[in-house]
């Protein structure tokens, strides 16, 4: 995945124009902006409101409702760890504990530890948990060693390949 560009009003407006014909265009536009810039700048609100003929309050309301849209670009790699029931049954909470040893508190993006850990609820990989999503790739059977590798910046591909190393019987 390429690095997101810096916010640029012209580029943003072009994205809005390209998608404005869709029925209920707000979410597709917000997704496209989030993809392009890694966040949705406050400047997007009047832009979308004007183009789609909506009130600013309505656009702001939509923007703030959804977990996916971020107000600031992420500083570090974001590791989205599933903490829903099926992954709980497979020990995801011990990974939350493990991340603390790297100085990372879950859902706290403030610390500059090289990566941040974000809670998600279910990634549809409930039989191969604990599951995580990093840079759009799904990681299965996550364990402490591989979480450390993710935090330390190993490529997602390599971390997935590490799952294939022989391991002992699960504890």
């Amino acid at each position: 995945m390429g690095l997101p560009a810096h916010w640029d009003d012209g580029h943003a407006q072009a994205i809005v124009e390209k998608l404005k014909h869709l029925d209920g265009a707000t979410l597709p536009i917000l997704h496209a902006l989030q993809d392009a810039f890694g966040y949705v700048d406050a400047a997007a609100v009047p832009m979308i409101a004007q183009t789609l003929n909506l009130s600013r309050a309505e656009v702001q309301g939509t923007l703030s409702f959804y977990h996916d849209f971020k107000a600031k670009p992420a500083m570090d790699r974001v590791i989205r760890l599933c903490r829903a029931e099926a992954c709980q049954a497979q020990g995801c909470e011990s990974l939350v504990e493990h991340a603390r040893r790297h100085g990372i508190a879950v859902d706290d993006h403030a610390a500059a530890a090289g990566a941040s850990l974000e809670t998600v609820y279910c990634l549809g990989n409930c039989a191969l948990g604990p599951a995580a999503m990093v840079e759009g790739e799904l990681v299965g059977r996550l364990d402490a060693v591989r979480l450390s590798a993710l935090i330390e910046g190993a490529s997602v591909e390599d971390v997935i390949a590490m799952a294939q190393e022989p391991v002992g019987e699960p504890a």
Partner: peptide, 8 residues
Amino acid sequence: DAAALSVG
């Protein structure tokens, strides 16, 4: 399938 991808 994404689950298969998740394990290599």
